[in-house]
């Protein structure tokens, strides 16, 4: 079955992104397809490569990147939410004239239409948030 996952909260402050990670892994293990994971609201903060949690803590951004690497899943960060919160890829760095970028590997920044499209294309939309 084809799933879309929506993540509304950032890592650490709220359990939502960990729940979403665990759900995504379990769905893949059960042989389902993850059409897209869409990061919205503070959820965009899952996609920075500049976090460095202590060794005995989970690396949430790194875990998403690993999943994308292993399973080729599409991790999409909402551009409007990202601009508000300072998540930047190379394209945004250029467009907004920023002096760097911080997007983690496996993530891409795109429009809200990607969430709507995920709702249309997927058989299930599962939302994790506050």
């Amino acid at each position: 079955m084809k799933f879309a996952i929506q993540v509304n909260e950032g890592p650490y402050n709220h359990e939502a992104s960990v729940s979403a990670l665990n759900f995504t892994k379990a769905a893949l293990e059960a042989g389902h397809e993850i059409f897209r994971v869409f990061f919205y609201h503070d959820g965009v903060n899952n996609g920075t490569r500049f976090t460095s949690p202590p060794q005995d803590d989970i690396n949430i951004a790194g875990s998403w990147s690993e999943l994308a690497d292993q399973h080729g899943i599409d991790l999409v960060i909402c551009v409007a939410a990202a601009q508000r919160r300072g998540i930047v890829d190379e394209g945004e760095q250029e467009r907004q004239g920023k002096d760097g970028n911080n997007i983690a590997s496996g993530f891409r920044i795109s429009g809200l239409g990607q969430l709507v499209e995920a709702g249309i294309q997927s058989e299930r939309l599962i939302v994790f948030g506050d």
Partner: peptide
């Protein structure tokens, strides 16, 4: 249920509603 059971529930029902 565990996470695998969570996934099964999402399949058995035809949509999900998150009461955030």
């Amino acid at each position: 249920v565990d996470y695998s059971g969570f996934v099964t529930l999402t399949v058995e029902n035809d949509k999900a509603q998150a009461w955030l």
